[in-house]
Design a protein around this nucleic acid. Sequence first.
DNA 1: CTGAAAGCGCTTACAG
DNA 2: CTGAAAGCGCTTACAG
Lengths: 331, 331
Amino acid sequence: MTTLKTIAEEAGVSVMTVSRVVNDIPSRVSDAKRRQIKDIIERTGYVPNSSARSLSSRFSKLIAIILPYSYNALDYPHNAQMVGYISRFIQDMDYTPLVYQVKDYYEVTKRLRSWKVDGAIFLGMFDSDMKNIKEDNRIPLVFTDSYSTMRQVTNVGLDDYKGGELAAEYLLNMGHRNVAFVGEASHESPVVRARLQGFASVLRDAGVKLPVDNLLPDIPSQSEIRTLCGGDEPVTAFFAHADITAIQLMKELRAADLDIPKDCSVMGFDNLQISELCYPALTTIGQNIEKKASIATNTLFQHITNPENPAQNVVLDVHLVERESVRRIPV
Amino acid sequence: MTTLKTIAEEAGVSVMTVSRVVNDIPSRVSDAKRRQIKDIIERTGYVPNSSARSLSSRFSKLIAIILPYSYNALDYPHNAQMVGYISRFIQDMDYTPLVYQVKDYYEVTKRLRSWKVDGAIFLGMFDSDMKNIKEDNRIPLVFTDSYSTMRQVTNVGLDDYKGGELAAEYLLNMGHRNVAFVGEASHESPVVRARLQGFASVLRDAGVKLPVDNLLPDIPSQSEIRTLCGGDEPVTAFFAHADITAIQLMKELRAADLDIPKDCSVMGFDNLQISELCYPALTTIGQNIEKKASIATNTLFQHITNPENPAQNVVLDVHLVERESVRRIPV
DNA sequence: CTGAAAGCGCTTACAG
DNA sequence: CTGAAAGCGCTTACAG
């Protein structure tokens, strides 16, 4: 195998000289030698050993992307896209991405230390473990979509509250007065809760009720749908906390013989690709996943480059994407 | 930082003794010492340095997952699922997955050597570079969905041809006599070509024509749709090479005022989750992505464990998944 | 401009 | 059962 030593021997120089050429350390080697060494590198296809570099220097040029452990963490298109973008951005910066699915906070620490990663980006909810994670790993860490109240944490998230508000405003404008929310808005999922809170606040200000019965932690069954959408004051629109949920809901609504949007309107949140392709095309609150991924990656690199950089909380905007799944109700 | 040396000093033993305890090398250390050392490890949260291990031993316990470079390689749900499953399986085996998006064959070699990965799994089409990749990297390599004619290559793929046959048989059974194929069936995409060939062979045997005009490399525009589905012998069914394509096609068909499946039937290939959720639910050829991922991973580990293992070509079965996007045409 | 020495944190291989 | 030595392939830090 080709190593610095092999090349040094062949070129009749020291290992250090080769190292300097490999790392492009400016004007410390004569041009002639430089050429000769580069030729050998080219010919032998020499690739520096990253483990050796990591061991001898302070940097591994490794970055971890951390997801909660699940059966298939990339099933959910939002996560898949985030990982796809982030891993590409990391590579474009000449770093190597490590994708980890972790079960608990102990595993986070173990993984991060094992390969001495230079930084990590967290997807999904690690709010409760964040304190421990930060204490155990004194490297740059970027969280996404986190709602931890911890200070000094760098997070890239969304204005979920505003998203909820936009959804409510739109449904009200379209004449809906009896609406329901689909999503588990517990302490476990602060993102969903923020969306619901924004949604509920606008309804409240408009004097429109959102009864507890219309807060659905799960996709309603067909009989529940019939109850909700039947009776004196039928629900005319559902706001689902995520596009995937909205699409599943549409399927159930159709199974209960309801036409969308004629009998019943549906809104989602995320603006995934499929939301444009599904039928009817989904009206939703759009977020820019690529931008979220790029800001998360860039912020991480800022912290790697300059460890003195203060923690920052970035909140990205959301916007209404109007398509065909919401009907205008005549007054 | 805690290292073997730190622990050794505290326990008053040699570095080697600690190393043996850490690696659970059986009955070479007295129980008393073992306990004491384990306590220190526990208390200090010691995690072995993988770079050092990689450098001094023959194994890195790193496995690369290699995708073709693209804007967002995980946009396509099939790839996202493969990466999700494979990376989990790799972790479950106590290895670390490295996700690479590579532009060309040189980059493959660079990546694989840089971290001295113990093996690699390739997703997507590297058929033409396979020879070079294999020559440059004498480590276990597993390809998926490859159609390289090279011998001695381990590949996990699908019976794409049979999938095409099943689609044709089904459409014929449902009374369709004028059908079209959507997909770029060039040399560049042998998977698509195999699907088309299976499809075409059954039609031919049944005496049903598949004119060139009905071979659509891309999703047809609305005016093309009107031409295809109008006239004397209108196309009554489309077979798309992938579910995503089928779903996009359905959108175009609807835009051209065609009802599915009343006016026009559609079949896909893959059986992704969304294919069940879309409307109408998509009739498709199902593949088991989890199984493909698990066999690819297991086969790779077999080769890592036993380098003498002969190359093998695994062909997974496919099956018809009947849903609602194909209409039965009365005779 | 170039190099010899030391060291990163482990494991391998051998000695006792 | 345990340990001292050498070495993996680099970089850091220093000397000239």
